[in-house]
């Protein structure tokens, strides 16, 4: 069974390699103009050159930093606010409908307002990332807190626990699956908004890098940037996935 699984993963990797080979083939034969589509070799060379001279690497790090700071800010605020709102029936009744109203609003729609308020600055980009990444976190936490098994609360009342003890010992652990799912969604949103913010505010980062490369018709640099963004998305999702299964390891043993 295990060998079977390994073989399939190998076949799957081979298929992906074949796709890349096909991409090389297409560009070698100029089926698509190299202005639009550089071969994987040229994209790879552009990436290596950029990373070695340091420019691309610095931009990559700048984007990752923005994404993580905005995401952490949103996560902390989201869990805190979500815990306050979710743990009180009254707060849910008063604030809940407003949150539902805000939920479908595209986060990028607040960019013009953010630019008008904060200018084309670093705090504008961070603010937009944090604002956009806040909603999935907040709603997931509220949902997690309001879906806690009511008998657990009865137990906590019988034990005479304080409100903070209830939050830290009962509500927070039992809404952890929802919170982690929200964090994963938030991270995706944070990466997207980091790119959007960099594109619009021309802050040093991969977003502005790919935009400038496209304007100058440097397609190899453009693809190098897009590949790095894809790698960022992939690696961050994998890391968070591992973190999630580690945090929720008690679930399997149930």
């Amino acid at each position: 069974m295990k060998i079977d699984r390994l073989l399939w993963t190998g076949a799957s990797l081979l298929f992906f390699a074949a796709l890349i080979w096909f991409w090389q083939f297409v560009s070698d034969n100029r089926w698509v103009s190299p202005v639009f589509l550089p071969g994987p070799d040229r994209a790879w060379n552009a990436m290596m050159r950029g990373l070695q001279t340091g420019d691309l690497g610095l931009r990559w790090i700048a984007t990752i930093e923005r994404m993580i700071y905005g995401w952490l800010l949103a996560s902390l605020a989201g869990i805190f606010l979500g815990a306050v709102i979710g743990s009180s029936e009254m707060a849910r009744a008063y604030i809940g409908p407003s949150l539902e109203l805000m939920r479908p609003l595209p986060a990028s729609a607040v960019v013009p307002l953010a630019i008008a308020l904060l200018g084309l600055s670093e705090s504008m980009v961070l603010g937009v990332i944090a604002f956009g990444a806040l909603w999935p976190m907040l709603l997931a936490t509220v949902h997690g807190f309001s879906a806690v098994e009511p008998r657990l609360y009865e137990v906590s009342r019988a034990l005479g626990l304080s409100r903070s003890a209830v939050i830290f010992k009962i509500s927070l652990p039992s809404s952890m699956p929802d919170i982690l799912a929200g964090m994963r969604l938030s991270l995706t949103v944070a990466l997207i908004l980091a790119v959007v913010g960099e594109m619009l505010a021309s802050r040093e980062g991969l977003g502005s890098h790919i935009m400038l490369a496209a304007r100058a018709f440097r397609s190899a640099d453009l693809f190098a940037g897009v590949i790095l963004l894809g790698v960022t998305g992939l690696v961050s999702a994998l890391l968070l996935g591992w973190f999630e299964s580690w945090m929720l390891r008690w679930r399997e043993s149930r």
Binding site: W8, T9, A11, S12, L13, F15, F16, L19, V35, F36, T188, L191, I192, V195, V196, M199, L206, G207, I210, M211, A213, A214, F217, S219, L222, F223, G225, V226, L229, G230, G233, L234, S236, A237
Partner: peptide
């Protein structure tokens, strides 16, 4: 067979493709 391809392509942020589509 498609597992790796899907998992690698899916996390590319859609906005990163804007410059390519613009070209």
């Amino acid at each position: 067979l498609l597992e790796v391809t899907v998992e690698v392509l899916r996390p590319i942020p859609s906005v990163a493709l804007i410059p390519i589509a613009l070209l």
